Simulated assay, not measured.
Amino acid sequence: MRDVALFLLLMAAACSDWRCRKVSNYLTFPFMAAGLLYQLLLGTGEAALTGVLCAFALSLLPTLFRGMGMGDQKLLMAAGAWTSHSEVYLLFLYSLCSCMLVALCKPERWPRLWGNMILLAAGWSGHHQLWLPGRTSSALSLPYAVHLLAACLFDRLWR
């Protein structure tokens, strides 16, 4: 049941993120609440709560630095509600590997990525502020839900 619910959540989010680059709160919040309730009824509510908290902690800095959207963060937290802290940690790592693989496969974006890294370092060293690129000047915009779905499939097939 957990795996089916998680797969349905990630599949719906991936379709939405691929089409609109947005993961709706109408999708994440009900699934997060359902995951917490389901695990609470099974007697594993602590695992669900630690999964949500771990997902929040893992995605806090990427969200603050605009590497992830808040919808992506809430999606990871909803996945944490259906799993546990150890599983959501692996999903997060696998999804980052998937994102890096895609970034490496797009060498035409490397100069812009390098320029953004230089701008980030210059802003911090000169003014102790992070100068982050806007959405239009970003080197690579990826639908994170698609990568989270790929991470989930990889994790389930690997086990």
Score class of each variant (00 low, 15 high):
His127Tyr: 13
Gly126His: 08
His147Val: 06
Leu142Phe: 08
Tyr26Pro: 00
Met68Leu: 15
Leu101Arg: 12
Phe92Trp: 08
Ala13Val: 04
Ala150Cys: 02
Ala13Thr: 04
Asn25His: 13
Cys54Asn: 02
Phe154Gln: 06
Ser59Cys: 15
Pro133Leu: 04
Val23Cys: 01
Leu96Ala: 06
Cys152Val: 07
Phe65Cys: 08
Ala81Ser: 03
Pro30Gln: 05
Leu90Asn: 12
Leu93Arg: 08
Leu90Ser: 14
Thr50Ser: 11
Arg109Met: 13
Leu157Lys: 05
Ser141Ala: 06
Ser138Gly: 13
Pro62Lys: 04
Leu6Asn: 09
Leu10Trp: 05
Leu64Tyr: 06
Cys105Glu: 03
Ser137Ile: 09
Arg135Asn: 07
Gly115Ala: 13
Leu93Gly: 02
Thr136Lys: 14
Tyr26Val: 10
Arg19Thr: 10
Thr28Cys: 03
Lys106Trp: 12
Leu60Lys: 05
Ala14Thr: 08
Ala81Asn: 10
Met1Val: 13
Ala13Cys: 07
Leu64Phe: 05
Leu132Pro: 01
Ser24Ile: 12
Ala33Ile: 14
Leu142Trp: 09
Leu42Cys: 09
Phe7Ser: 10
Ala47Cys: 10
Arg66Glu: 14
Ala55Pro: 13
Leu36Asn: 00
Lys106Pro: 02
Cys152Ile: 00
Ala145Ser: 11
Pro133Trp: 08
Ala55Arg: 00
Leu6Thr: 15
Leu42Val: 07
Ala81Glu: 00
Leu142Glu: 04
Cys20Pro: 03
Leu40Arg: 14
Ala139Tyr: 02
Leu60Glu: 06
Met70Arg: 10
Ala78Glu: 01
Leu140Cys: 13
Leu53Gln: 05
Glu46Asn: 07
Tyr144Gln: 06
Tyr38Leu: 11
Leu119Val: 11
Ala78Leu: 05
His127Thr: 14
Leu8Lys: 06
Arg156Thr: 13
Asn25Asp: 10
Leu140Ile: 12
Leu64His: 11
Leu9Pro: 00
Ser141Cys: 14
Thr136Met: 08
Phe31Val: 01
